[in-house]
Each structure stands twice: as C-alpha cells, then as structure tokens.
Design a protein around this nucleic acid. Sequence first.
DNA 1: GCAGAATGTTAGCCTTGTCTAACTTTATGT
DNA 2: ACATAAAGTTAGACAAGGCTAACATTCTGC
Lengths: 150, 150
Amino acid sequence: MKEFDPAPHATSDDRPPDLRAGAFQGVREARRNELAEDYVELIAELIHDQGEARPVDIAARLGVKVPTVSKTLDRLAREGLITRAKYRSVFLTEEGRALAKECRRRHEIVLRFLISLGLDPETAERDAEGMEHHVSERTLALFAAFANRS
Amino acid sequence: MKEFDPAPHATSDDRPPDLRAGAFQGVREARRNELAEDYVELIAELIHDQGEARPVDIAARLGVKVPTVSKTLDRLAREGLITRAKYRSVFLTEEGRALAKECRRRHEIVLRFLISLGLDPETAERDAEGMEHHVSERTLALFAAFANRS
DNA sequence: GCAGAATGTTAGCCTTGTCTAACTTTATGT
DNA sequence: ACATAAAGTTAGACAAGGCTAACATTCTGC
C-alpha cells in the first residue's frame, strides 16, 4: 500500500481522525430526520390552508406517489408524530405539532434571511427547503439578526 | 372526509399542487447525491493530506464502519467516480476529481460566508458540511460576495 | 341511492445505507 | 521470514424510502 513515498504534505492536523468525525455524524443524524420534518411541516400547512391533510395532497406536494406517503405516514404514526385512521386524513399529535412549529420557525428564518441577502423568492424557497434542516441554532440566530437589521 | 366545514382560510395559492412540488423534488435529488459528494470530497482531501485514501481512514472520518465504506465505494466505482483494486487504496477518476473540486469550492464558499457572518469556526464547519449540498449557484454567488466585501 | 371516480391501503419488489460476524489479504516487528 | 496485527472484503441482516399493481373504501353526481 505504500510503494511510493508516503510523506506528501504533512498538513498540521494530527488529531485522531475520529475526533473530526463529528461533523458528519451530525449531518447523518440530521438527514435521518429531514423527511419526518418535511412531512409534519407540510401536514400542518395543509391543515391550516385546506382544513385537512390528505395523503393525495401530501403526495402531490412532495412529488411522490400515494403509497409512498402511506408507508411513511405509518412510520410517523409509529413515532408518535401523527395520528391516523384508515381511509381518513391525518392529524398531528402534540409532539407533531410542536415539531411542525419548530420547523416552520426555522424555515421562515432561513427564507427571510435569503431574501434579505438579495435572493429571488423562488430560489430562496427552494434553497430554504434544503438548508433548513442543517442550520444550527447559533447560525439561525445570526440569520435572524441579519434579516432584521437589513 | 368532510363532516366539518372545509373552508378554513382560502390562502391565495390556487396553482395545482404539482407545480409547487419542485422544491421537494430538487431536495430529494440533492439528497441522493450528498453521500457521493461527501465521499469524493473526503477522498480528495485524504489523498492530498496523506498521499492515499484508505477505507479505514474514510470510515473513521465519516464515523461509519469499514464494511459500510467498502460497499459505498463499490457504488462510487460503478458510477465512475473512483477506481479501486482489491485490498488497495482508492483513486478518483477524472469525473470524481472534477466533482471533488466542485464540492470543495462550494464548501469553502459556504464556510467562509458563515465565518464572515460571525459564526465560530467549529459550528461553521459543521453547518457548512450539511448546507453545502443544498445551496444553489445563485445563493453561492451571494455568499461569496458577502464574504468578500465584509 | 347507486355507479363510477377518486382516494387509500396492501403486497411485493428494488436500492441504499447501516450494522456484525467471519474470512482473506497485506503490513509490520523482531 | 514468519507470526501477528491491521486492513479489507464478503455475506447476511435490517430499516427506510421509492415504485407498481391489485384491491378496498369513500365521495359525488346524477
């Protein structure tokens, strides 16, 4: 494995690799929750806007098929974020509602920040959707402050 | 499904739901590529810093087990991003190198931006790791401009 | 009030990403 | 130089998230 000279750059960082793994661990953790967060946020929005959250509407908004939604809703129910009865629309539990509220807050802050930076609303919306799950509370505070002061 | 009055808020947006699905479609697309991007970026870094990229080091840095890395590397090879020989360390293809370079560029811009916003470097690193895959080219340009002018 | 349309569920398949356990190959130290 | 340690691979399990096809239920318009 080392037929060639193995001393290429010697770039300072001598910490054992594991100590730098934190960033990726965190990202993977965030990725696991992204979908659930997207769902509860969307469900809350649908309930607010249309009075109920139906699988067919969730599927249309997320761009997936209805059976995919059905399966995911089963998981969310198992995790205590929603309640559902067969063939009926979906409701958030207290926990689900809290999560939705938190997600919406983050989403709003990121969105307002991007727009105040000068981004067009459409792109801002798309980027916020992807970014919101990966922004720390500390960064969020800076985003909010920036949007407020500009 | 509508035993109750279904006209709750009537909030403007009458586009068919499918037309608003774009944001999520894009996010899902981005999510599919995140892992590959993390890998090639890390592989490039390891080759640069240590002269070679070994599964054991990749695993340590990503915080996963070696067999997980091995399987993922098989996929990356299948997709033409890396080349590998049994029991040997990993190399990037031209395509892999291009992707790594692009990822590094994005990472750097996001990181510099967050730091110039006032974030501490550790948190900035963690957030950049998560955000970099979800930031559009347009937003990236704004980030770069902001970091440069401050 | 019923037939047909719309919606929802279930079953079954595929891929990805994670793990552990068992095995093979490569590297190392004396 | 060979025994042992370190690294890598393979096999097999599992959960998540996506799909289609087939079936069940609910809604709706006459």
